[in-house]
Measured scan of single mutants.
Amino acid sequence: MPSETPQAEVGPTGCPHRSGPHSAKGSLEKGSPEDKEAKEPLWIRPDAPSRCTWQLGRPASESPHHHTAPAKSPKILPDILKKIGDTPMVRINKIGKKFGLKCELLAKCEFFNAGGSVKDRISLRMIEDAERDGTLKPGDTIIEPTSGNTGIGLALAAAVRGYRCIIVMPEKMSSEKVDVLRALGAEIVRTPTNARFDSPESHVGVAWRLKNEIPNSHILDQYRNASNPLAHYDTTADEILQQCDGKLDMLVASVGTGGTITGIARKLKEKCPGCRIIGVDPEGSILAEPEELNQTEQTTYEVEGIGYDFIPTVLDRTVVDKWFKSNDEEAFTFARMLIAQEGLLCGGSAGSTVAVAVKAAQELQEGQRCVVILPDSVRNYMTKFLSDRWMLQKGFLKEEDLTEKKPWWWHLRVQELGLSAPLTVLPTITCGHTIEILREKGFDQAPVVDEAGVILGMVTLGNMLSSLLAGKVQPSDQVGKVIYKQFKQIRLTDTLGRLSHILEMDHFALVV
């Protein structure tokens, strides 16, 4: 994948999101292997301009796509893939009243899908469409860049269908997702969380590099694949309309690839034109409109599966009536509230959605109805927002919020430890010299600072030695090549209790 991002070429006709291997024109390309080798690009942008032909009021008969309808489940399912879809609609009884809503608040519980998330729908649909058009064949390999849930859905379907599955996901995604993927037989590649989507090191860039190296491999490409919004247009939206008897006044959905909100909203605009569509985008993402909503100094966020630093091709923002931004604290607070007060075992993005819903639905009156999409299960986040310690460490809970008995030293300040200034190293000294210094002084790690004293990161003896043994660096290389740029900081005025929580999850903390 090139470091400079080429513009994806656009073909003359058809839909841009065809499933299957992508040609340089962004659509299915038939021909000899030699032709494909000559024409197939190194990668295709996940934010390529959409060429979708959908228009409100256009006859369904003019759609270029294969459409399906929700099917009634048999008493005995032939395999677990038949437990994807037909998820329950559940009334939220307490939270709406707590925040003064007059309307009825309903939750579409997508964590009841077989793999635990709304992404099971698009995973199965992308595979079925690729099999139907002859792209996927027995023994082929599926590769997908994902925040985890699409990966789980694909790995689940691949396990049943017999495909090899490789999932490329950023490091910030939970260990629970990784464990589930491994249990399903998927191979996992992790990428830096802070890598831009168009960087060769991003999950998108690495996935395309693997595709170019592995024979008979395919990126189904949830960011561009029409099967993504079509899955929701054909099934999720129809289920909502049936469950609500066609009567709903507002739908609120958090947005990642945009397939969920695009597919549902398009069908609702056709069948229930008075329904307002509300999009939820986390602070630090750029999906919301108008652009002024996205202006923030924050560039990272903890909530998973929603928000991006690019506009995915499948996201149709014209069908969203209003956007709201959400933050991590309210997302996790509301997710825990949904679990504790409503018994809905949902993930953090569901918290984002409901946090926005109780604001947006203030305009609705008694007798009206708001539906929220709860995308995934708490299963993926047992060591994250479900953990009091994690919430404390991230600053989303305060010590006084917890009532468990603490040891005698818990409320003492870090400054009472009488710490001395640490050994520091410059980023320009060599790895070999740094190892000598650390061994001589008896230290395992040291902060790396520039000549102005600005902290650049941390270097550890173990990481340097393993990097040297693996051949990633040489003793003569500058130590700046092996620094940890993500590390926890703590102030002298913070409590030892807070430091204790940090050290339970990290090997060190830097006192500043």
Rank of each mutant, 00 (worst) to 15 (best):
P12C: 02
P12M: 08
G14D: 11
C15W: 09
R18V: 11
R18Q: 13
P21T: 13
S23E: 15
A24G: 15
G26M: 15
G26F: 06
K36C: 13
K36S: 02
L42T: 09
L42I: 13
I44T: 09
I44W: 02
R45D: 04
P49Y: 02
E62L: 10
H66M: 10
T68V: 11
P74G: 08
L77F: 13
P78L: 12
P78S: 12
L81S: 09
L81R: 08
G85L: 02
P88C: 11
R91I: 07
I92V: 12
N93H: 07
N93L: 14
K94M: 12
I95P: 02
K97C: 05
L101W: 02
K102R: 14
L105F: 11
L106C: 15
K108P: 05
E110P: 08
R121Y: 06
E128C: 02
D129E: 13
E131Y: 10
E131R: 02
D133R: 14
G134R: 13
T135C: 02
G139M: 05
T141E: 02
I143P: 02
T146P: 07
G148Y: 07
N149M: 06
I152G: 04
G153S: 12
L154R: 02
A157Y: 08
A159R: 11
G162W: 04
G162P: 11
I167F: 06
M169F: 02
P170D: 07
S174I: 02
S175I: 12
E176Y: 02
V178K: 08
R182M: 02
G185A: 09
E187V: 07
T191R: 06
A195S: 05
R196D: 02
S199Y: 07
P200R: 10
V206T: 02
W208S: 02
R209I: 09
P215D: 09
N216G: 06
I219Y: 09
D221L: 04
D221T: 08
D221K: 02
D221A: 04
Q222C: 02
R224G: 07
N225T: 07
S227W: 05
H232S: 09
H232P: 02
Y233T: 02
T235F: 12
L241S: 02
Q243A: 08
L248V: 15
L248G: 02
G256T: 02
G259I: 06
T260C: 08
I261H: 08
A265V: 06
A265Y: 02
